[in-house]
Amino acid sequence: MTQASDSMAQGAATDRPVANAAAARRRGSFVERNRGPLLVTPALVTLFVMNIFPLMWSFGLSFYDYRLTRQDLPRFVGLDNYARMLADPSIWESLQTTALIVAGSVGLQMILGFFMAMLFQPIFPGRRILLMLVLAPMMLSYVAVGVFFKLFYNPNFGLISKLIEVFQGTPPNILGDPVGAVLGIIFADAWMWSPFVMLLVLAGLVSVPKYLYEASQIDRATPWRRFWTITFPYVRSLLLLALLFRTIETFKLFDTVYIITEGGPGTATKVIVQYLYRVSFQDFRTGESSAIAYVILFIVIVLTNLYLFMVKRREQEQ
C-alpha cells in the first residue's frame, strides 16, 4: 500500500518541472538517495547485535555439547541435543503443563474479557473512571502480581485462602497442591490479562456503526438476533486476535510461575520457560538449552505469523 503510493508519488513527480528540482537534488545527495536504508540501519544494527546475532550463535550452540560452567571447548555433537531433548519426558511434561495453563488462562481471559466488554460497551455515568480501575491489573508488573498473589494464596494470611476458607471451613494450602497450584497460576494470570481481551473486544464493539443498531431496531430484531447478526461479526476478528496474542504471551509465561510456585509443587507448574530456565541457568546445559530455545522460537514464529496474518486481514476488511 505505502509502497505503491510512494512510487506513484515519485512517478508523478518526474512528470512535473517543479518536482524535477527535487528529483535532481535527490539524485545529487547520497543521503537523500538512500533515505530508506539510512533511516532503518541504526535500528536493524542494534537488533542484529542484541537479538539476531545471539540467536544465530545460539543456533550454532545447539549442535555442540557445551556447558557454560566448564572450561572445556564446545564439542560438536550434531543433532544429539535435539535427540536428547525429544527423548526427555520432562520437556513433554512441561509442554503439557504449558498447554494446560495457556488453555485455562486464555480461555478464562476470553470469557471474562468478553463479558466485561459487553458490560462496558455503552456510555454510562462514571464509565471512564471504572474502566481505569478494571484495567489496573494489566498495568501491574508480573512481579507485583506474583509477589502479592503468592501472599493472597498464603494459607494463614492470604485473601484468597480466607475466601475459600469461608466455603470449606479449613484454610486451603493452595500452592501445596498440584491442582491448586495450577489453578492458582491460571487465576492470577487470567485476572491480570482479561482486561486486555476486554480492551480488544471493546474496540470491536465501538467499531459497529450506530446506524446498524438503529436499522435493526426498525426491523424489529430481537436482542439475541441483533447480537449474532450485527455485534458478533464486528467482534469476531478481534476475539481471534486477542486469542492469538494472549496465547503467545501466556506461552512465554515465566515471571509469575517463577515467583509463585517456582514450577512446583513437584513439577506441577513447570511451564516450558521455567523448564528452560532450569536447564540453562541452573543445570547450565547450555547446548541442550539452545536446542530447546529453538523449538520455542519456532512455535513463536508460527504463532506470530498467524497473528500478523489476521491483523492484515482485519485491516483489509475495514
Binding site: P209, Y211, L212, E214, A215, T229, I230, P233
Partner: peptide, 11 residues
Amino acid sequence: MVFQFYALYPS
C-alpha cells in the same frame, strides 16, 4: 426506513 449509509448488515 432507508438509511443514508444503507445500514446493510455486513455479514
